[in-house]
Nucleic acid binder design. Structure first.
Lengths: 302, 302
DNA sequence: AAGATTGTTTCATAATAAGAAATAATATTT
DNA sequence: AAATATTATTTCTTATTATGAAACAATCTT
């Protein structure tokens, strides 16, 4: 028998000075009202009402208990409504994890827009190469660029990034502009090497994917470093548009071989959807999804 | 599902940062711990913990709820223990109802002794001829002299009163001392008449009860008045010892025809025993019961 | 790779919450 | 005085729910 319910019933009986009256008000049977009061009396070992079929008097203990019970019920209601409220309007600290470049270039901007819209929220943005584990890392939300091997979390595609070949205008002026993928063999390619194995770039020609082994004198596990290098004119790089889209738009870099561009990389928001998603998380996902619709600003130029 | 139990489980899980740990501590199955937390999450519409099988983090809402829940649980415990305590040691106002003479002569004295022993109790003594209804009159305890027609309340015989014929020494000196019941026919008898019908006194002789119709020039529905009248030497009265025992002991009155004395009248404590009797009531009944053991002081003289 | 540990789910069973109706006590109305 | 109405409790049956053992799934530790 739910003690909180019994308390509510007891309180109603005390307020109405009647079992039947309380039953009506709570739309419960008289029988249950009676049983709830007995439930409390048993658990307390105390009579709460002196009653006959026709008269009802609250006992002294009953009266003392009544005051306390009301305070407790108020607290419970307050707790529940404040919790639900906390969940219905975005509030609290939003903990986000993402890969460094995407986070630094775009999430910080998105966040500052979001926080302006929802002043009750504060944010904590943690940038890391690691594949995030929401519980382990104690974050609300993670972003990931590229395909996911399935995890127990829910993911939602919120944007995409083109992977484009690029070089600085100066470099191209000096070394010529490649027109076909094969032309890259004669170029100094800036190689992204997170692990020690990939030095091939994908190209798509007439629906067919081909991989071309490239070479160059810089290998690096930092996309940021490659970006800087390519802007400096060190060579040709393949980088995601969320890193270099703005550089292309600004003329610091030129996009090459766009006709051979491979499939876009998906960008996912990863969150824990097991039933309840707090308002801050839900609204941020929606916000960022809409922000990058229909196509994220970093994916287009000219 | 008892919400208070769910709260306790939730609190234990949050404190232990583990479902299994909480289960052990509460000697509950892991399954139930899990279900109780889900019960709260469902009723609040909120995730309280982010959890995988191996890791557990309380959510921000969970943490806020945790604080509130602990306060609520403390309040509930406090309320229950204070209520039980209120019931285990005598405290509060003890409301008593009794017939005027008995109450005035003896209960007031007993009460003042009792209240010295239990300083937490205060008393309210209401004297009335009416047959008391505990709930109607909102009293904890009533006393009644004489047989009871059965009521829904519990009664306990706590003492008895002899009914003795008496007169003042002066009266007897003037009018002679009756030796047999029949002698009363020649005496001025002071007649107690609560209703308009009884002017007979009972006597017992060799196990046989006989009623003798008496007469006199004072009829009164107040025992007190008859007592005063008899002390003043107005005539012979039949009065209960709780009224005149002390007068006989002091020599203000003399007991007559003791060999023919009818059965003692029982004196009952009447209370509402439906399951729980508060400490103040229980202890007062015990106190007064022992106070009048083995025989109340008003029943005997030399 | 095997075993241990954790939270969840499933499942069968025992407990119990629920209310309709009968009961008991007492007021009110006729 | 009798009939009716109202109140709290009890009884009884039914539908729901609580419960934990065991199976499961997902890691972590060895």
């Amino acid at each position: 028998m739910d003690k909180v319910v019994s308390m509510r019933v007891f309180s109603a009986v005390a307020k109405n000075r009647s079992f039947s009256g309380a039953a009506k008000k709570l739309s419960l049977s008289k029988a249950m009202v009676s049983k709830h009061v007995q439930n409390l009396e048993n658990s307390l070992g105390v009579r709460l009402f002196n009653r006959t079929t026709r008269k009802l008097n609250i006992t002294e203990v009953g009266s003392a208990y009544y005051d306390k019970v009301n305070a407790i019920l108020t607290d419970i209601d307050e707790a529940e409504s404040s919790i639900s409220q906390l969940n219905s309007e975005p509030k609290g600290k939003l903990k986000i994890m993402a890969q460094p470049s995407f986070g630094a270039f775009h999430l910080s901007r998105a966040l500052s827009l979001y926080l302006k819209k929802y002043p009750g929220v504060t944010a904590n943005l943690e940038l890391s190469q690691r594949i995030p584990d929401l519980v382990e890392d104690d974050v609300d939300l993670a972003f990931h660029v590229g395909e996911l091997n399935d995890s127990m979390y829910v993911s939602r595609r919120i944007a995409s990034a083109r992977r484009v070949i690029c070089a600085s205008p100066e470099y191209l002026h000096e070394n010529g502009t490649p027109k076909k993928p094969e032309d890259l063999l004669n170029h100094n390619c800036l190689i992204y090497m997170p692990r020690n194995d990939i030095s091939k770039w994908e190209f798509v020609e007439k629906g067919r994917t081909q991989k071309i082994k490239i070479s160059g004198d810089i290998q690096c596990n930092s996309g940021d470093a490659l970006r800087i290098a390519s802007i400096q004119g060190c060579g040709v790089a393949q980088l995601p548009t969320y890193m270099i889209g703005l550089d292309i738009q600004a003329g610091r870099l030129e996009a090459l071989l766009e006709d051979y561009e491979p499939e876009k990389q998906p960008i996912y928001a990863i969150y824990n959807d097991r039933k309840y998603l707090s308002a801050k998380i839900r609204t941020f996902i929606d916000f960022i999804y809409e922000l990058y619709l229909p196509e994220p600003y970093w994916n287009e130029w000219t």
